[in-house]
Amino acid sequence: MEVRTIKVFTTVDNINLHTQVVDMSMTYGQQFGPTYLDGADVTKIKPHNSHEGKTFYVLPNDDTLRVEAFEYYHTTDPSFLGRYMSALNHTKKWKYPQVNGLTSIKWADNNCYLATALLTLQQIELKFNPPALQDAYYRARAGEAANFCALILAYCNKTVGELGDVRETMSYLFQHANLDSCKRVLNVVCKTCGQQQTTLKGVEAVMYMGTLSYEQFKKGVQIPCTCGKQATKYLVQQESPFVMMSAPPAQYELKHGTFTCASEYTGNYQCGHYKHITSKETLYCIDGALLTKSSEYKGPITDVFYKENSYTTTIK
């Protein structure tokens, strides 16, 4: 009895394709271990004539594949690729409408935090270190965002349907971005203890939790000093293409032309909904596939993004 075979390709990165001759009487799992086709788990399936010449994702289970996976995804987590594939199996079914010149995501599976993050990423200057993220990001900007969303979920250790947080998501993504040249110098002034300067680099240099107003941050924000008295913390120097200011959701007025974009969060910790506000020729609110415009805006804002380049204080 002759062994019926077909020729397929296996890959971990969709760049390096490895030619395989597979036995049609055995499952993919018996031949390769966990195997995925377009995100779908085909591990328990036997090869079919229609699979001839198709590319299958496999887990990096030998040295060659491990090197290829690390170079593309910059992670050695053995569960990463499987999590990416199972997320992709959902995100490829989502709709990605162009809204006001940006790629958004039609609401499904509690994905409003991903839509808000995706919209924000198209408006701030950011370059990702893992080629996987950078490639998928370019495709997302062009309207094909399924891979990018699935990668975000995998890097953030999230599953489809789980509630997510924009600030946490951005923080994970910033860790995989090139923020080497970003720098922030802060000064804390206390009447009792004097003053202390701190220099922050990388992710810490672009994120701040405690106030939404970048102007206020430049002037000074009140913080408790270690001595128990009130101290003032203010920005001395900022070198970065953008800054992200966050605070627990509270009524906040966004003035046209003073910011790049913002995240609105309605609801409580267990259950809520994100919308995205962007400042173009007027203010726009993007909620999944829905767009509304207004000249002014007041609502429960939790993150505001500002364009920056270089700032030095005039406070002496």
Rank of each mutant, 00 (worst) to 15 (best):
K92G: 07
K218C: 04
L290F: 13
N147V: 11
Y172I: 15
Q123E: 06
Y72E: 07
F148I: 06
K106W: 12
G194K: 05
P248Y: 08
T198V: 14
E71P: 08
A247G: 06
H74V: 02
L173T: 01
L37G: 09
G164E: 04
Q122D: 05
G210H: 00
Q237F: 12
L17I: 08
F242L: 02
A108D: 08
V221F: 08
G228Y: 02
T116K: 08
I45E: 14
K44C: 15
S246L: 05
V189R: 09
G39N: 09
T232V: 14
L290E: 15
E68N: 08
L151C: 02
T5S: 11
Q222V: 12
A117T: 10
T211Y: 00
Q230T: 15
M207R: 01
T314L: 15
E71G: 06
C193Y: 01
Q175W: 04
E215Y: 02
A250S: 13
V203S: 10
V188K: 10
P131H: 04
K93C: 13
N157R: 07
E162F: 03
A132E: 07
W94E: 07
T91N: 02
D77R: 06
A69V: 10
T10M: 15
S213I: 02
A262P: 04
Q196C: 09
T232F: 11
F305S: 00
K95R: 09
Y208K: 04
S25I: 08
V12W: 10
Q270A: 13
H18V: 10
R83I: 06
A250F: 06
A69H: 15
Q196N: 11
V203T: 08
G267L: 04
S310G: 00
L121D: 00
K218Q: 05
W107V: 06
N111M: 09
T55L: 06
P249S: 00
V304N: 00
D13T: 08
N61D: 12
D303L: 00
F242S: 01
D23L: 10
H74M: 09
N147W: 11
N157T: 03
T199N: 03
F128W: 14
L37Y: 14
L179T: 04
Y72F: 10
H74G: 11
K280R: 14
Y269V: 11
E204G: 06
D109P: 00
V21S: 13
K201F: 15
G202D: 03
P224H: 12
E52W: 10
T116R: 06
L186M: 14
S181P: 09
P34L: 09
G220L: 03
K218H: 04
D165M: 05
H276K: 02
I45V: 14
S310E: 00
V166K: 00
C225S: 01
M170A: 05
Y36A: 07
P130V: 07
E239G: 04
L119Q: 04
N129Y: 04
